[in-house]
């Protein structure tokens, strides 16, 4: 087990190095000189030259790359010219809001997805199954930024029961969390449905039924248990998608998280913040993928045996 963890961690380090390098390449290849961007187009040339030297941008590329990697290890990405403070500090400050949104969405998606999947998978081919299967295709297809706006239209403008944007009270969390959760709910529901439908053919389900258990006991006690394994994995593997979704959804609802920060920084060419945020997001996604891998092998004894062998 320890060996597996160490191996995965090494791959993780490799991935983070690659991610940092990719960010470096994108920012260097992009047109526009950071010093001119920071000082504005009217800045005198000698000032621009001075700042370029201070930022170390006049040094040879390989040297720049090495010192960049050294900084990345310490999570130092330089100061944001928009906020006048270290870029990473700004990103860290926005992180809790994004985490809150993602946690709420994941909770909604898992509970709703499991429930829908159980209802549909319990009787494959039934009316409920067809409704859920059709509905989940639709849910996965609707663009989140549009469903978000439609939810604002219905619940904030027409019914006036929830705030349309911003943060502060738990009520502010409801619409963004639901918007972000919808496509993920569909994914969890489809996965659970397939898994439950397969499980229903197993011998132990027949045994459970012949013992005289009610259908609900069979579903919750026997079918659901086995279906949880893929669901746990998909949560980890979907962190990337969820993060990407959060970037868009945060912008719909003016939610003060990393997503709004990234779009703001890209629009203002505040590259230090863009680099810091992108790197942090990549790190989080990678950590969750890693965790999903390990949890998966712990949950299912069959896989645990295989990896030990």
């Amino acid at each position: 087990m320890i060996r597996v963890v160490v191996k995965r961690l090494l791959v993780g380090v490799l991935v983070m190095w690659g991610a940092a390098s990719l960010i470096f390449v994108i920012v260097r290849v992009a047109p526009g000189d950071p010093a001119t961007l920071m000082l504005g187009p009217d800045a005198p040339p000698d000032q621009v030259r001075e700042l370029t030297a201070t930022l170390g941008l006049d040094r040879p590329m390989p040297l720049q790359y090495l010192s960049y990697l050294g900084d990345v290890v310490q999570l130092r990405f330089g100061d944001s010219y928009l906020f006048n403070r270290p870029a990473m500090a700004e990103v860290f400050e926005r992180m809790p809001a994004t985490a809150e949104l993602m946690l709420a969405s994941t909770t909604i998606a898992v509970i709703a997805g499991l429930a829908l999947g159980l209802l549909a998978g319990g009787r494959p081919g039934g009316l409920l199954d067809r409704v859920v299967s059709g509905g989940t295709i639709a849910l996965q297809s609707f663009p989140t930024f549009w469903t978000g706006i439609m939810l604002i239209l219905i619940f904030a403008l027409a019914l006036r029961v929830l705030p349309s944007a911003g943060t502060g009270t738990p009520a502010h969390l409801v619409l963004p969390a639901i918007t972000l959760a919808l496509p993920f709910t569909a994914t969890v529901a489809r996965l659970t449905r397939t898994s439950v439908a397969e499980t229903m053919h197993e011998q132990y389900i027949r045994t459970a039924r012949s013992k005289g258990l009610t259908e609900r006991q069979v579903l919750l006690g026997h079918a659901l248990r086995n279906s949880l394994i893929p669901v746990v994995t998909i949560i980890g593997l979907h962190m990337g998608g969820l993060m990407g979704g959060a970037v868009v959804v945060e912008n719909v609802f003016a939610w003060p998280g990393v997503g709004t920060l990234v779009v703001e920084s890209v629009a203002n060419r505040d590259y230090t913040v863009v680099q810091a945020a992108t790197f942090l997001v990549a790190g989080i996604v990678m950590a969750f993928n890693l965790a999903a891998d390990l949890v998966y092998s712990q949950l299912d004894p069959r896989i645990r045996m295989e990896s030990a062998a």
Binding site: G18, M243, V263
Partner: peptide, 14 residues
């Protein structure tokens, strides 16, 4: 593996 660490839409935005 490296590319998959970035959410696709985030990489596209950047």
């Amino acid at each position: 593996d490296i590319l998959l660490a970035f959410p696709a839409i985030l990489l596209a935005i950047v």
